[in-house]
Structures are given as C-alpha cells and as structure tokens.
C-alpha cells in the first residue's frame, strides 16, 4: 500500500511541476502571438490629402455713436436721431454670420443711472422692438448668407424710454456688437 501511495505521490508531483513549467514557458507565446509575413506581388497604401480654406470676417459700424439728443423724463420709445446704426459686413467675409447685441453697461451720468433695459432695438429680422438686458447677448441677425465678395449692410434701429423723474444729466451706455461665424 505504501508503495502504491508513494508512486501516486511522485506522479502527482511530476504532473504539477510539468504543468507549471509548460504554462510559464509558453504563456508569453500564447499572449503575444506569432506574426508571419507572406510575400506580396504588389504593395499599396492609402493616405489622404487635406487643405483648410481660411475664414475671414469683418464688420464696420457707421452712424455712431447712437444719439438720442435731448429728451424729457417720462418720454417713451423715442427713436435715435441718427437711426439706423449701420453694420457693414465686409466683402472679404467668406462665412455665414450672426450679429448680436449686448448692453454691457447701464446709462450713467455721474452718480445717477438708469437701466439699459430702457433701450430697445429692432432690425429687419427682429421687427418687434426688443429691450436690451444688462450683459445679455441678443440676436439681431442670424444665419445671414455669406457676403462672399459683396459687402452686406445690416441696419439696427434704436429707441429709448427715459424713466419719469430721472435726474437731469448727459447719460451714456456701452453696447457691444458681435459679428461671428454662424455655427
């Protein structure tokens, strides 16, 4: 019995050692694989050619600054004396574009002020007078066609309401007109 047990023990140990050795020795091959190259009669490869056409955009403001002259407090929706503000998009512009407006400050005169929301605008696209909001970008013209060689003129009409009881003074505000490529 002991002899049989000893024989079985030896065989078992041999199997274990052989198995471990096999896995260690050949695992790398199994993992990395074997590459072979067969001879080819012809060889071809694909590549690509690319070019980026540069984009141009420009805008010119005319009839500036936007002037309302002298108005009494309580006046509503008075048009600018030099309406409309003219935004000329240059002929070299080769993209579709948007024009947006943004009131970046309120109307200020010394220590007195009133909201830029009293200023409103309309365009040939936005026909209902739309009030400005402080630091809010508003659409004036959207997805306008590419000028592509011909200057494009876009008008913006402005109107102002002076709050009743507003302190007298020469008030001014800043607006930012952004002309950018349509997305």
């Amino acid at each position: 019995m002991n002899k049989e047990f000893d024989a079985m023990l030896v065989v078992t140990i041999a199997i274990i050692v052989l198995g471990v050795f096999s896995v260690i020795a050949y695992r790398e091959n199994l993992v990395s694989g074997i590459a072979s190259l067969t001879g080819y009669a012809t060889w071809n490869q694909t590549t690509s050619a690319s070019v980026t056409v540069n984009e141009y955009i420009s805008a010119t403001l005319s009839n500036i600054p936007i002037d309302f002259g002298s108005l009494d407090p309580g006046t509503t929706n008075q048009p600018a004396t030099n309406n409309p503000l003219l935004v000329q998009v240059g002929a070299e512009t080769n993209v579709e574009y948007n024009i947006t407006l943004n009131g970046t400050t309120n109307f200020v005169s010394g220590g007195n002020s009133f909201s830029v929301g009293n200023l409103s605008y309309n365009t040939t696209e936005i026909t209902t007078p739309t009030p400005y909001e402080l630091n809010v970008e508003k659409n004036a013209y959207t997805n306008e066609p590419c000028p592509c060689g011909t200057q494009a003129d876009r008008n913006v009409w402005h109107y102002i309401s002076v709050p009743a009881g507003q302190v007298a003074g020469a008030y001014s505000a800043n607006i930012k007109i952004t002309v950018k490529k349509s997305t």
């Binding site: 109307f107 001014s172 607006i175 930012k176 952004t178």
Partner: peptide, 19 residues
C-alpha cells in the same frame, strides 16, 4: 477681440467684437 473707436461724445458708444 473687442474693438473700440473714439467718436464724438454720444449717448451710446458701441464696440465691435469677433471671436
């Protein structure tokens, strides 16, 4: 880029910008 020009004194002074 924000562009500003000096003009005659006026009530609303617009600036131009493009990104």
């Amino acid at each position: 880029a924000e562009g500003n020009c000096f003009t005659a004194p006026g009530a609303v002074i617009p600036s131009l910008s493009t990104p």
